[in-house]
């Protein structure tokens, strides 16, 4: 089989009968394909930050820490010392008398809320197809997140065992 005849026969369609056989030569050069997202004078640098990368990393790092915090919390609340039956104002007062459990709960609050919020943001981006819907759902989500984190933090810091 002669390569020469193949080239001249099919050069117009750009498809050769033999895989890996180059169709192009000095006389018949391949078309130039411009690199996507090429930097120009108008867009000299990347215009986006690395937010998505950091969000991805945060999901994994916070996940590892949350395993300890949340499962420890569940063991304390549901398993030890009579399970859920023991919980009441006096029980909470006893626990938040210790800075250790205050820091534990504070860290759990912040990490779980941020982890859950970033997770829900991904889900909204996946399913809400209209740009407007996305903006509104995420606005609602971030409002709920800020509110919950502030309220939870305030409750831990201002807890008063002698409220009555």
């Amino acid at each position: 089989m002669s390569n020469n005849t193949v080239k001249t026969d099919t050069a117009a369609s750009g498809i050769g009968p033999v895989e890996g056989d180059s169709l192009y030569s000095v006389d018949n050069p391949a078309p130039v394909i411009e690199p996507p997202r090429q930097r120009t004078k108008k867009t000299p640098r990347s215009t986006r930050g690395n937010f998505e990368l950091y969000a991805w990393l945060f999901m994994r790092l916070s996940g590892v820490v949350l395993v300890v915090l949340v499962i420890g919390h569940l063991v304390v609340q549901l398993v030890l010392d009579g399970g859920v039956q023991k919980i009441g104002f006096a029980f909470v007062a006893g626990r938040w008398a210790s800075p250790f459990w205050q820091v534990w709960d504070l860290l759990m609050l912040w990490l779980a809320m941020l982890h859950g919020t970033i997770g829900l943001r991904t889900i909204i981006n996946d399913y809400a197809e209209r740009a407007n819907t996305r903006v509104w759902l995420k606005g609602l989500l971030y409002t709920a997140t800020v509110f919950t984190i502030l309220l939870g933090t305030l409750v831990i810091f201002t807890f008063d065992p002698n409220i009555r």
Binding site: G88, F89, V92, A112, G119, I123, L154, V155, T158, I163
Partner: peptide, 30 residues
């Protein structure tokens, strides 16, 4: 499960916040 846990956490922080209202309110909900 991720979505379920998130909604639970939202309600859970609200019910825990009742300790700032009164011991009776908290104990009643718990």
């Amino acid at each position: 499960t991720g979505v379920l846990i998130f909604f639970f956490l939202f309600v859970h922080v609200l019910d825990t916040a009742l300790v700032r209202v009164s011991p009776e309110a908290y104990d009643e909900v718990v």
